[in-house]
Every structure is written in structure tokens, then in C-alpha cells.
Design a protein around this nucleic acid. Structure first.
Lengths: 177, 177
DNA sequence: GTCTATAGGCAGATAGAC
DNA sequence: GTCTATCTGCCTATAGAC
């Protein structure tokens, strides 16, 4: 039994990934949760507040996922594969990366959310750089940026083509085994 | 003196690149063109019609740009650089690739527009593959996909960071000179 | 926490005059 | 081609009762 506030956030995350943060309304959330829109406002006063909560929780979840991978998976190449598999899973549900979506909606989000988004991608790159470093790459931060760019772009193309293998093929060659 | 229909399309293209296709209204267009919303409807009966016109014109423009580059620029590496410079120019205006933006808005666009978008990216990759082929790459179509993915993703990140060099760095290494 | 009721604004779209 | 006028519907948000 998850509490209402969490259910709202879960739902909002899903909708953002598929339709974009501007692609759903408080009414969509309310209908699905089974309450009224005014009750959604009780939990998140404005939609901008919801956006910030969404990105901040997502960044924490990313950090947690990294920690888990670092603990459970010995090989850096396997860690990368695990992350990619996660993102590939979005395609089957016609979703993309939530933060990639919000980056596309850059013009309509608040400075606070922009900062949180930038932080998300920097965290992502920092962790990737560590993996590439462990794999012996000469310039880990550079490869990390290329990797994130290719991943985010490939998700757009993969959903368009309805083919998750686009993600694999876009990231092929980064890990030389 | 450009005609009204073209001015509408130009304006819609700009707005799509910055705010997204769902981020502007007929009222935005009307105010800027200096006519009423009903007049916009005269030129493009529905917003879905406008979307299709937008993508189809954009694909034709891309083809024309490729033809010009093929004619005017001898070195394939220089052609690629020219294309990248074009996309980098978007960042200063807080814009991204129009078709990348629409790909993010995938869920809210018609099947016809989805098809047109897919065609755009396939054309793009075909031309890129030709350049990589001329440069002696062993697997041109594969590199072409990686290149487009990295380009589209890097535009999202570059605008977020307010730094066009993100695009350069994301595409570094594709052309080995 | 959730409700009812309501506000003010904007969306896409159409009918018909000029 | 452009206008006025208008429709229906949805949006975010708030006040106040329970």
C-alpha cells in the first residue's frame, strides 16, 4: 500500500516519460489515482513543484542504482550493459528517459528544475567516467559525454522506429571487449 | 515579401525547435504574423495538418542542403563539419533539432507525422553513411546511426548546459583525420 | 486529506460576413 | 484571405466545508 503522494509521483514519472511533462494534466493524475484534482494540489501545490520533486527523486534513484551496481556487479562492462538494458526497457512501453524528455521541454521548466536536470546528467557522466576509467579508456570524461549523448539520442530514434536494438547499435563500440 | 503561409510555417518551425510543437498555439502564431487565429486555420485546417507540413518541408530542406554540400564541398569530412556547425547554431537560440523535438513528442503526433519523421532520420543516415563510406569507414550505416544519435542527444545536453561545445565533444572521434 | 464549487484563462476549431 | 463571433472543452489553481 503505497501512499498517495508516492503514487502521484510514480504516475507523473510514467506520463512524463511517454507524453512529456507538459503532456499530462492534474486531471490525468487525479483520474488514475482515484481522487480529485484539488487533492493533487494538496500534495504538490503547483505543477512546477511536481516537476522539481520528480527530477530530484529520479536523481536519487539513479544514485541508488549506481551504488547497487557497484556493489553487485564486478565487471564495469557488465555494469554498463545493465544500465543500457534498463533504458532499453523503456522502448517497449513507448517511453524514453524522463530527464531526456524534460531536457527537450527545457523552455517551459523553471530554473530550479533546469539545475536539477543538469545535475542528473553530470552525475550520470561521472559514474560512466569511472567505469570507462576502470576499462582503461584514455579519456573517461570525454567518452562518458559521448555515451550519454548517444544514449539519449538513440532512445528518441528507437521509439520512433519501434525498435529497441537501435539503442544497442548506437552504443556499440564504446566498450571494446 | 514572403507569403503568409510560409511565414506561418517559418514561425511554427522556430517555435517547435524552442518550445516544442505542443508548446505553442495558433494564438502565438496569429499574434506574431499579425492576423487572427481563424486565418491560421484557413492556411492549416488543423494543427495536425500544420505538423505534417512542417516535417515534410523540413525533410525537403535537408535534402536540398545535402545536395548543395555535395556540389560545393569536396571533402566529406568538411561536409560533416558544415552540417554540425549548422546544428550547433541552434544552441545559441535555445533551440534544438526540430525533428528531434517532435520525436520526443512522439505520443501526441499522428501516424502520418511519425512516418515523415522516420523518413527524415533515414534520409539523414543515408547521406551520413555515404560520407563515412567515402572516408573509408568499414561499416558506414552503423556509424551513421551512432552519429545521428550522438548529435540529437548532444543538442539536448548542450542547450541544458548552455554550451554548444558539448555537440563538438559528443561527436569527436567519428571522423579520424 | 479529500471533497465541492468555482474562478479565469487558453486551447483548437467552426460559421458566416466582408 | 481575413475578419467577428462563438462554441466546447480543458487547463492550473484557490476557497472553504467536511
Amino acid at each position: 500500500m503505497t501512499d498517495t503522494k508516492t503514487r502521484i509521483l510514480d504516475l507523473a514519472e510514467n506520463l512524463t516519460q511517454s507524453k512529456g511533462f507538459n503532456g499530462f494534466s492534474y486531471l490525468d493524475l487525479a483520474a488514475e489515482v482515484g481522487i480529485k484534482t484539488s487533492s493533487i494540489h494538496y500534495h504538490y501545490k503547483s505543477k512546477a513543484d511536481l516537476a522539481l520533486a520528480l527530477v530530484e527523486r529520479h536523481r536519487e534513484a539513479l544514485e541508488a542504482a549506481f551504488k547497487r551496481l557497484d556493489d553487485d556487479v564486478a565487471n564495469p562492462a557488465d555494469r554498463l550493459e545493465s544500465i543500457v538494458t534498463h533504458f532499453k526497457g523503456y522502448i517497449g512501453e513507448e517511453k524514453i528517459c524522463m530527464c531526456g524528455m524534460m531536457a527537450a521541454e527545457f523552455e517551459s521548466i523553471s530554473p530550479a528544475v533546469r539545475k536539477a536536470l543538469a545535475l542528473y546528467f553530470r552525475d550520470f557522466q561521472n559514474w560512466l567516467a569511472k567505469q570507462f576509467s576502470a576499462l582503461g579508456h584514455p579519456n573517461p570524461p570525454a567518452v562518458a559525454l559521448q555515451y550519454v549523448s548517444a544514449l539519449e539520442g538513440s532512445l528518441l530514434l528507437a521509439r520512433l522506429e519501434g525498435d529497441a536494438s537501435v539503442v544497442d547499435r548506437s552504443l556499440d563500440g564504446f566498450v571494446n571487449t
